[in-house]
């Protein structure tokens, strides 16, 4: 078993209306000093069996085709080992 995390973020040049709304709400709630907010999403995938190169390539394909919209979003795949340590990919 291994846990893989896929982080999906709107591409830097793409407007992020949700992040903008959060940025607008923060000062209204008394939180000052935030100059930029970008909102993304995080997927946690539990992978059965050994996390081979092939399996990892498959996770990348999942991220490319379903978890993110590559036209307007970037994604990053991270592996969290059974011990809980992270390693970037």
């Amino acid at each position: 078993m291994a846990r893989v995390v896929v982080d999906v973020m709107p591409k830097p040049e793409i407007l992020d209306p949700q992040g903008k709304a959060v940025l607008g709400a923060l000062p209204r709630l008394g939180f000052d000093g935030v100059t930029e907010v970008r909102q993304g999403k995080r997927f946690e995938l539990e992978i059965d069996g050994d996390l081979t190169e092939d399996r990892l390539a498959e996770v990348n394909a999942m991220a490319e085709t379903l978890l993110s919209n590559p036209v307007i979003e970037d994604y990053a795949v991270r592996v969290i080992q059974e011990s809980g340590q992270e390693s970037g990919q």
Binding site: P10, E13, I14, L15, D16
Partner: peptide, 9 residues
Amino acid sequence: SVQVGDPFM
């Protein structure tokens, strides 16, 4: 790159 709309704006 494509445009993203914000209807509330």
